Simulated assay, not measured.
Amino acid sequence: MKNYSGRHIYMAIAIGVIFLSPILLLLLPSFIANSVHPTPAYWHVLVPKESYLLYGIAFLMLFIAPLIIFIFDVKRITITIGIIFLCFSGFFFFLASFHYISIGSDSIKYREGFFEVEYQYRWDEISRVKYNEVPKSEGFSEYNIYFMDENMINLPENGKIKEFRRAITNTLQEENIIIE
Rank of each mutant, 00 (worst) to 15 (best):
H37Y: 14
A167D: 15
N158T: 08
Y42C: 04
D124L: 07
W123N: 02
K109P: 01
C87L: 15
I101N: 06
K49I: 08
N154H: 13
W43G: 12
F63Y: 07
P48F: 07
S97A: 15
V134S: 10
L155V: 15
E125T: 03
L54F: 12
F94E: 11
E133D: 13
M148D: 08
S30A: 12
L67A: 04
I179M: 05
T171F: 00
D124N: 11
N3C: 06
G113L: 14
F19S: 08
Y42M: 11
I145P: 05
I68S: 00
P135Y: 08
R76S: 03
I84E: 10
E150H: 09
Y146A: 02
V36S: 05
L172W: 01
F98Y: 15
T80R: 04
L27Y: 14
E50F: 09
A33W: 03
Y100E: 02
L86H: 10
A65M: 09
S127K: 03
F70L: 00
K162Q: 09
M11C: 07
I126Y: 00
F140A: 12
L20M: 15
T169G: 05
A12R: 09
P135G: 13
E116Y: 08
R166W: 00
Q120Y: 02
L20V: 14
I101S: 04
V45C: 01
L53H: 08
T39F: 11
E118Y: 05
S97L: 15
F147V: 00
K49P: 07
A14Y: 05
Y143K: 06
Y55Q: 04
T171G: 00
G6D: 13
G82Q: 09
L86P: 06
A96C: 10
S35Q: 10
G159Y: 01
G159F: 04
S97P: 07
V17M: 13
I168R: 00
W43P: 09
I168E: 00
I177Q: 13
I153G: 06
L62K: 04
A65Q: 05
I84H: 07
E133H: 10
D149E: 13
V129C: 13
I69W: 02
F115R: 10
L26W: 12
I81D: 07
Y119I: 01
A12G: 05
D106Q: 12
L46G: 01
P48H: 09
K75C: 01
I84F: 10
Q173M: 06
A65K: 01
P135Q: 15
N154F: 06
A167Y: 03
Y42R: 12
A96K: 14
P66N: 06
